[in-house]
């Protein structure tokens, strides 16, 4: 599904070059539920953006669903994003002057689906996420959790193969965070690959695979069976902190 081979990425700022990713090799199967962890500056967001074709990489190869993703035109990248990927952001990033239903329907608008049809589909997705009564509300009339659910509905509506979530619970309280994670779990159960970036251990622990980045390299990969182990070390980290 996702195959990364020796991915390098550096940011050039004036005379300084910041080498963020120093050779990432990664293999993610269809249906995986993965979290990417790491301290700030470890390159986790950059990695996610490269996965989502929002950013390009300098060296290496990236295959998504068998297609080599490299140096694509913006138009082609937009099409891939629309077809394969759904995004969920920390700050929700809903369009402020569109109501919940219109926000959810937006990806279909770019696909050229007629208005009535896409609004109907949007309503179905909102219903799935328990927000049917909020369809005509504007984003500023909703709580953080509701906004994030609208964002998830928007990510799901184009039937993507992957959901990429950058700190999806970063702006939410614990209870709401768990609700959102529960939804993402259900999404994953339906066969969609879910990749989240987080720095919260409890959130990461709800995924089936944790990739820990350190200084632009993969530090360790903790798989399902080792999660209990991870939780223990996480408790230790908390105690020492």
């Amino acid at each position: 599904m996702i195959k990364l081979n020796n991915i390098h990425k550096s940011y050039v700022m004036g005379n300084n070059s910041l080498h963020v990713l120093k050779g990432i090799d990664l293999h993610i199967e269809q249906g995986d539920f993965v979290s990417i962890m790491g301290s700030s500056g470890s390159g986790k967001s950059t990695l996610l953006n490269i996965l989502g074709m929002l950013d390009n990489y300098d060296n290496g190869t990236y295959h998504l669903s068998g297609n080599l993703i490299s140096n694509m035109s913006e138009t082609k990248a937009a099409k891939y994003r629309n077809d394969l990927v759904g995004f969920v952001f920390q700050s929700f990033n809903l369009i402020s002057f569109k109501n919940a239903m219109e926000n959810v329907a937006l990806p279909l608008y770019y696909k050229g689906v007629p208005r009535k049809k896409r609004n109907q589909i949007a309503l179905e997705y909102l219903e799935k996420l328990g927000l049917k009564d909020w369809a005509n509300h504007m984003p500023n009339e909703m709580s953080g959790g509701q906004k994030q659910r609208v964002a998830i509905a928007r990510a799901l509506i184009s039937n993507p193969k992957i959901i990429l979530a950058d700190e999806p619970t970063g702006a939410l309280d614990t209870a709401t965070s768990y609700e959102v994670m529960e939804i993402l779990k259900q999404v994953n159960d339906s066969g969609i690959t879910v990749i989240i970036v987080t720095h919260e251990h409890d959130i990461a622990a709800m995924t089936r695979q944790i990739i820990r980045l350190k200084d632009g390299r993969i530090h360790e990969i903790i798989r399902n069976g080792e999660l209990k182990q991870f939780q223990k070390s996480y408790m230790k980290e908390l105690e020492t902190a």
């Binding site: 937009a78 770019y110 990510a155």
Partner: peptide, 16 residues
């Protein structure tokens, strides 16, 4: 800018 960024993230082509 941000709004345009979001639109492009969810599939708006430059032409759109």
């Amino acid at each position: 800018t941000q709004e345009i960024g979001i639109q492009r993230a969810i599939g708006a082509t430059p032409a759109t």
